[in-house]
Write a protein that binds this DNA or RNA. Structure first.
Lengths: 224, 224, 224, 224
DNA sequence: AATGAATGAGCATTCATTCAT
DNA sequence: AATGAATGAATGCTCATTCAT
C-alpha cells in the first residue's frame, strides 16, 4: 500500500496509457499557463497545443473548449496559492514573514490566474460554477484572511486594512514582462510597506473583508 | 453681398463641417479610450465605432488602423496627465498634495494608457516613433520627477524612492472595471502611504530615476 | 456668328461655369482613361477624382457611378478610333497604309477601351444600351470593314481573313506597360505580316465578318 | 498483428488522409486557375473555394494568401508548358509542327498565367523569389529557344525573329472567355503564319533572345 | 455647385471547434 | 486515442456611393 502519489505513478499493464495521458494533460495545462501569461488570454489554441507538443485534437479531447482549459489553469494556480499559504501558516516565522513570503513568491503565478480570468464575463461565470475550483478559492481566501488577521494580532499589519483590501491591492498589480526584476522587487517592497503597521496614513472608509470585495473574491486579477 | 463662392466659404471659424468632424474624432478617441480600458486592446473596431456613434468607415477615415487609434488614445491620455501635473505644480498646496491629487485623480486615465500600450510590440514601436507623443511623454516624466523631488525636499516623500520607482509602481497598477470606486480609492491611499516619509520599511537597492526604468521612459505600462 | 466651337468657348456672364464644367468633365474622363489603362478597371474612384484634380463628389455629380464613367471613357475612345479611321480612309495612301496607321497608332487607346469593357458583364450590357455609343461603335466597325475590304481589293491583305478576324486579333492583343517600345513595335509588325497577302499559310474555317464575332463587336478588348 | 500505433500508421502509400488533402489541393489550384482566367486576379477567395468545393478555411490552410495561391497556379501552368515543350521536342514531327502544337494547344493555359501575374507588382516579386518556379521558368524558356532555333534551322521559321519575339508575342495575347473557340484558333493560326519563313515582311530592329526581353524572362505576360 | 466626410456592404484573413483518418 | 485537415463564423479593413456643409 503506497501513498496516493505512488498509486498514480504505478503503470498497470492494462492501463498503460493512464500515466501517459496524465503527463500530456499536465503538459497542456503548463503550456497554457505560460502562454496565457505571456501572450494574453487570446493565444490561439493551436499555439498552446504546439507548445505542449500535442495536436489541437488532443487538446480538445481533454478540454472541450478554451474556457475549460482556462478553468484547469486557474485550478492549478489556485492549488499553488493554497500551498503557498499552507507553507506560510505552518512555517515557524511570524505572520508578517508569511505575508511577505506569499506576496513575493512566484509573481508569474498570479499573472496566469489573472490572464485566465480576463477571458470574459461568461468565462468567469463558468469558472465560478465549478465546485472544485470554488472550494479551492474559498480555501485560499480563508487562508489569506487568517494570515492578515494573525499579522494584525501580532502588530505587524496596520489595523485599518482588512483582508479584502489586501486581496484587492494584489488584484490591481500586474507585472509586465518588460519590468526588470530588481525594480519589481522594490515595487513589491513598497506595497508591503503600505500594509505595515508602521505606515501612518489614514485610509478613507473602513476595512474590507474578502467578502466585501465580491465573492468568490478574485485573489488577484490583472487582466488584459 | 459676396459671391456664392465667398458665401459658402464663409463659415464661423471653429464651426462648420470642420468642427463636426472634430467632434466626431473626439467621440471616437473617447470611446476607444473607454473600451480599451474596459475590454482590452482587442475590442472589435466595430464596437468602438458603435460606441462613438459613427460607422466603421468614419473611424477608419480618421485612423488608418488600430495602431493609429491606439496612438491617438495614448496621446490624449498623455495630454490629460500633463495637465494634471501642471495643475499639481501650480496649485498653492504642498508637493505632497500635488502628488496625492495626481495619483488619485481620474484613475481610469492611467488604465487606458496601459491597455493601449498592451497592443503589441509593433504598436509600441510605432507609438514611440511619433515625435509629438514622445515630447508629451518627456514632459510628463519631467513633471513627475520634479513633483517627487519637491515632495522629498519638503520632507513628505521618503528619501529612498526615486521618481522612477513611482513611475514604475503606477505602471504596475491596473484597475479592473469591476473594482468599486471606494475600494480603488483605498488601494491608492495605501500606495501613497507607502511613499510617504512616515513609511519605515527599507527598500532593497537604490532609488530609480525615470531614465533608469527605460528611455524614453514609459510613464506607465511598458508594453506587451 | 461664330462656329459651334466658338459658341461653346464663349463665356456668357450668366453661364460662366459652362466652360469650366466642360473642362472638368474632360479632365475626369482623361484621368479615368489613363488610370483604367494603367491600373485596371478597379481603380478607386477617389484616385480618379484626385488625378482629375476634383473631389469625389464632383466626379459623382457628372457620372452617377463607375459604369457611367466607363461609358464616357469608352465613348471618348471610340471617337478617337473613328477619327483614326476617317484619317485612314481620306489619306492619299493605300488601304494597307491606312491599316498600318490605324493598327500602330496610339496603342494605349485600345487599352483604355479594353480595360473599361472588362468591368463586368453587367457593365457591358449597360454600355451597349447607350445609343450614342452604339452608333459610334457601328461607325468604327463599318470603317474597319471598309478598310479591310479595300486592302483586299488592292491585293495587300490576304483573302482568307475577314474584318472580323482583324477585329478579333486586335481584341486579343494587349500591351502591358512593362513591354518596351521597340519590342511592341516588332510584335505589331509581325501581326501585320500575318494579315498581309504575302502570308502563305492556310487558315482553318472561313473569314469572319465583324458581325460573326458578336455584335456590337468589341473592336479590341484586352481585359483584366 | 501490429500495435494499434502500427495499424493506424499503416496506410497504403499514396492514399489515406494525405491523398485526400492532395486531391483537395489540386482542386483548389484548378479552380483558381480557371477563375483567375475567367474573372481576373481579383476573384473573391470565397468563390474560388466554392468552385473547388471546399471552405475558405481549407483554401487558406494550403495557401496563406492570394499571392501564394497565384504562385501555385503559376507553377502548375509552367509545369504544363514545360510538358508541352517536352512533347514537342520528343515528337517525331518537324520543329515547326512542335511549335504549332505548343502554340495552339490549350490556349487557356497561357491565359491563366497571364491573369495570375497581373496580380500586382508585389506578387510578381514574390513569385520570382521562388526558386522552384524560377527553375521551371528557365526550363520553359530554354525549351522555347531550342524549338524556335530548330525551326529556323529547318527553314520553317523566318530568320528575322528570335525566341524573345515569340515569347513576347505570346505574352501579349490574351483570350477572353467570350471569344469562341474557332475564332481563337484562326487568330493563332494567323500569328503562326506571321512567324513562318514564308512571311515576307521586314521587321524593324533585330531578333530578340528571351534574355533580351527581361530576365528571368517572362515567358508570358510580364506583369503589372 | 464643389467638397470631402459618413456610411455600410464586401472581401481577405484568422482561428475556435469539429471530424475523418 | 492522436492527429491534423476542414469548416465557417468573426473581425479587420477598403471603397463605392450618399449627403451635409
Amino acid at each position: 500500500m503506497e501513498t496516493t502519489a505512488g498509486m498514480t505513478d504505478a503503470r498497470c499493464p492494462g492501463s498503460g496509457l493512464r500515466s501517459d495521458a496524465a503527463r500530456r494533460r499536465r503538459q497542456i495545462v503548463e503550456a497554457a499557463s505560460q502562454l496565457f501569461a505571456d501572450e494574453g488570454p487570446d493565444v490561439p489554441m493551436e499555439r498552446i497545443a504546439a507548445a505542449a507538443g500535442v495536436g489541437v485534437g488532443t487538446l480538445y479531447r481533454r478540454f472541450p473548449d478554451r474556457i475549460a482549459l482556462a478553468a484547469a489553469v486557474t485550478e492549478a494556480t489556485l492549488e499553488e496559492m493554497a500551498e503557498l499559504f499552507r507553507d506560510a501558516a505552518h512555517g515557524q516565522g511570524t505572520a508578517w514573514d508569511g505575508l511577505v513570503a506569499v506576496l513575493t513568491h512566484r509573481t508569474p503565478l498570479r499573472l496566469s490566474l489573472g490572464s485566465v480570468q480576463a477571458l470574459s464575463a461568461g468565462a468567469t461565470v463558468a469558472l465560478r460554477a465549478d465546485p472544485r475550483r470554488r472550494r479551492l478559492q474559498v480555501e485560499v481566501l480563508e487562508a489569506l484572511t487568517e494570515l492578515v488577521q494573525a499579522a494584525q494580532a501580532e502588530g505587524s499589519v496596520r489595523q485599518d486594512v482588512g483582508p479584502g483590501d489586501v486581496a484587492l491591492l494584489l488584484s490591481m498589480i500586474r507585472r509586465r514582462p518588460t519590468v526588470p526584476d530588481d525594480a519589481a522587487v522594490r515595487a513589491m517592497a513598497l506595497i508591503l510597506d503600505a500594509l505595515s503597521a508602521r505606515a501612518a496614513g489614514t485610509l478613507p472608509g473602513a476595512p474590507f473583508s474578502v467578502a466585501d470585495v465580491g465573492f468568490p473574491v478574485r485573489v488577484d486579477v490583472p487582466d488584459d
